[in-house]
């Protein structure tokens, strides 16, 4: 059975991180995963809209879920923050049927949609692991990345709070490392791999925000990583786009996990838009 998903792009993959959308599309195409972009789905609210008005955020997300249900597809997220916000909203609605009824009533009134609670919310990483399968991914690899040492950076929403996480052991996960291994690269263990990138406070306290991302990059570098692999475009922005302001000597390529897989599938760095990163591929990455 071929795999097909409703692709929730999130805002950043349509804006400052367009290389993420491009590389997701090419990689899925190459693997035979069909994607239907949800062009009518709205921003998940990133946990920000809900701080103003939690119910508005829940109605908007329930609408997104309803759209996928109407299309008969499960949702693929490519941003860990979007998937975290979606999963939290879904759990919240499932736990409180009264509240779900209120949200649905508002949704029906304003848009005519209804959320049934059947859609599954996934993200690219867990689709690779659980739906596509790492054995199949290994078979598709034409260019094993055996010269690359890669540090996985999970992104908070992948793990915390545990109740919304789909990782088997959110306090000590290995899912990203297994994907890194599947494409022939060597995963690097480093102390900051489960930390926060600092992006959510970049507009509120830039110093704290960039100290967090700088610490994470240094930690990966000290452990011998050639690159940091992200699954959230917000982590990517804080570690890549801001890296020259953190410490220009770090020179650490930050790679979306889709791009890492793409390289192993024989897709060129140009096609994967790796040249649009602020930190251009260097060292072992450039040599692939």
């Amino acid at each position: 059975m071929s795999l097909k998903y409703a692709l929730f792009t999130g805002c950043v993959a349509k804006g400052a991180g367009r290389e993420l959308l491009t590389s997701t599309n090419i990689v899925c195409d190459k693997l035979g995963i069909e994607l239907v972009e949800m062009t009518d789905a709205a921003c998940c609210g990133a946990g920000v809209v809900s701080e103003d008005n939690a119910m508005i955020a829940d109605i908007v997300n329930a609408r997104t879920f309803a759209l996928a249900e109407e299309a008969g597809l499960d949702i693929m997220n490519i941003c860990i923050t979007c998937q975290g916000v979606h999963r939290k909203c879904q759990v919240k609605l499932a736990r409180d049927p009264k509240y779900m009824a209120r949200v649905n009533e508002a949704l029906r009134e304003t848009t005519g949609h209804e959320y049934k609670g059947t859609v599954k919310i996934k993200h690219f990483g867990n689709i690779m692991l659980n739906d596509y399968g790492l054995d199949k991914l290994k078979e598709a690899v034409v260019k094993p990345l055996d010269t690359i040492k890669a540090g996985a950076f999970y992104g908070c929403y992948a793990m915390r709070p545990h109740e919304y996480s789909d990782l088997a052991e959110p306090d000590d996960p290995d899912e990203m490392e297994r994907i890194i291994e599947a494409v022939g690269a060597t995963p690097v263990d480093y102390s900051a791999r489960l930390k926060c990138c600092g992006f959510p406070i970049i507009m509120m306290n830039k110093k704290n925000s960039l100290t967090l991302s700088g610490n994470a990059i240094s930690s990966a570098k000290d452990a011998g990583s050639d690159c940091v692999i992200t699954q959230c475009p917000l982590c990517h922005l804080n570690m890549d786009a801001y890296q020259p302001e953190i410490d220009s000597s770090l020179n650490m390529p930050i790679i979306h996990i889709q791009q890492l897989i793409g390289l192993a599938l024989g897709i060129s760095q140009d096609e994967l838009k790796m040249n649009t990163h602020i930190i251009r591929p260097t060292g072992a990455i450039a040599a692939v």
């Binding site: 805002c11 950043v12 809209v49």
Partner: peptide, 17 residues
């Protein structure tokens, strides 16, 4: 930041970065 988020998402459905 919250107000700006509300304004842009409420108007266009997505964040204006």
């Amino acid at each position: 930041h919250v107000l700006g988020f509300r304004e842009t998402v409420g108007k266009s459905g997505r964040l204006n970065e």
